[in-house]
């Protein structure tokens, strides 16, 4: 038996909206560690790993670890029937062939019940090694989204250059080229706007903007984003979900020939 009640149902709505364009289906694993998902996009270029810990829910009950094979498109369709301020309860029997979703409004006078048919998904699980990154950039998630949107007009690739001066995003294509440099700025009014860099050594890597733009759809979940980079390893883009979870994206770099 799995049962998890999420008082901020909007978190689940935003979470599914943020990943549904990257992955079409996946096994959500429920266990004593919480509700998690690891899934690669169909071209094996990007991977999403998300976790909502048990303390994201009240109550959270999972008697035995089990996968819930879910079509993200179908789950998204059902979650669109929930209002942003609804409480969402997820429930599944063991073994699970259906996921029940109950939406309760804050006034406690409307209850909607939906059932999602689950799928058998034969998914590959990748071991992600612990990595000490050469450069870590903490910045505003909406600024990151804006940069991806702007540079996507010029090219399908972006170079990210991190030095002690700051971080520079640059793109070049047929129409011309552009670059956006952010300096470290911890003295700003809003904590969300600060750009903070932890640097072991300078890095310069090239990535597909299409994927970065898809990751940036997670912006409504968190005002901050962290970019972790080392030469010749996948980029890690992390959004924290309050203190109760995260959405992490890994993106294989483009390799210069």
């Amino acid at each position: 038996m799995f049962e998890a009640r999420l008082s901020q149902g909007a978190v689940l709505k935003k979470l599914i909206e943020s990943i549904r364009d990257l992955v079409s289906e996946g096994n959500f694993d429920c266990s004593e560690n919480g509700l998690s998902l690891q899934a690669m996009d169909s071209s094996h270029v990007a991977l999403v790993a998300m976790l909502l810990r048990p303390d994201a829910f009240d109550p959270y009950r999972c008697d035995r670890s089990m996968p819930l094979g879910i079509s993200l498109k179908s789950l998204s369709s059902i979650l669109r029937c929930a209002s942003n301020d609804d409480v969402i309860t997820l429930r599944a029997e063991d073994p699970a062939d259906q996921l029940s979703l109950v939406f309760e409004n804050p006034q406690n006078d409307k209850v909607s019940e939906y059932v999602l048919n689950l799928m058998d998904i034969d998914s590959e699980h990748l071991g992600i090694p612990e990595t000490v990154y050469d450069a870590v950039v903490h910045m505003s998630s909406s600024e990151f989204q804006r940069i991806c949107r702007d540079l996507q007009q010029l090219s399908d690739s972006v170079s990210i250059d991190v030095s002690k001066e700051g971080v520079r995003f640059s793109a070049a294509g047929e129409v011309g080229s552009g670059s956006i440099a952010l300096r470290q700025n911890t003295n700003v009014d809003s904590g969300d706007e600060a750009t903070v860099i932890e640097l072991q050594q300078q890095v310069n890597l090239t990535f597909s903007i299409k994927y970065l733009s898809m990751f940036a759809k997670t912006t409504p979940l968190c005002g901050r984003v962290t970019l972790c980079m080392s030469s010749d390893v996948p980029l890690l883009v992390e959004y924290k979900i309050d203190e109760v979870g995260y959405v992490r994206y890994y993106l294989a770099p483009k390799i210069e020939e």
Binding site: M40, S43, H44, V45, A46, L47, E124, H125, L126, G127, I128, P129, S157, T206, S208, V233, P234, Y250, A252, P253, K254, I255, E256, E257
Partner: peptide, 14 residues
């Protein structure tokens, strides 16, 4: 030109 890498080259299947 740059070639898009794949995650399989970096992360091993478990």
């Amino acid at each position: 030109t740059a070639t898009q890498g794949r995650l399989d080259s970096f992360f091993k299947s478990t």
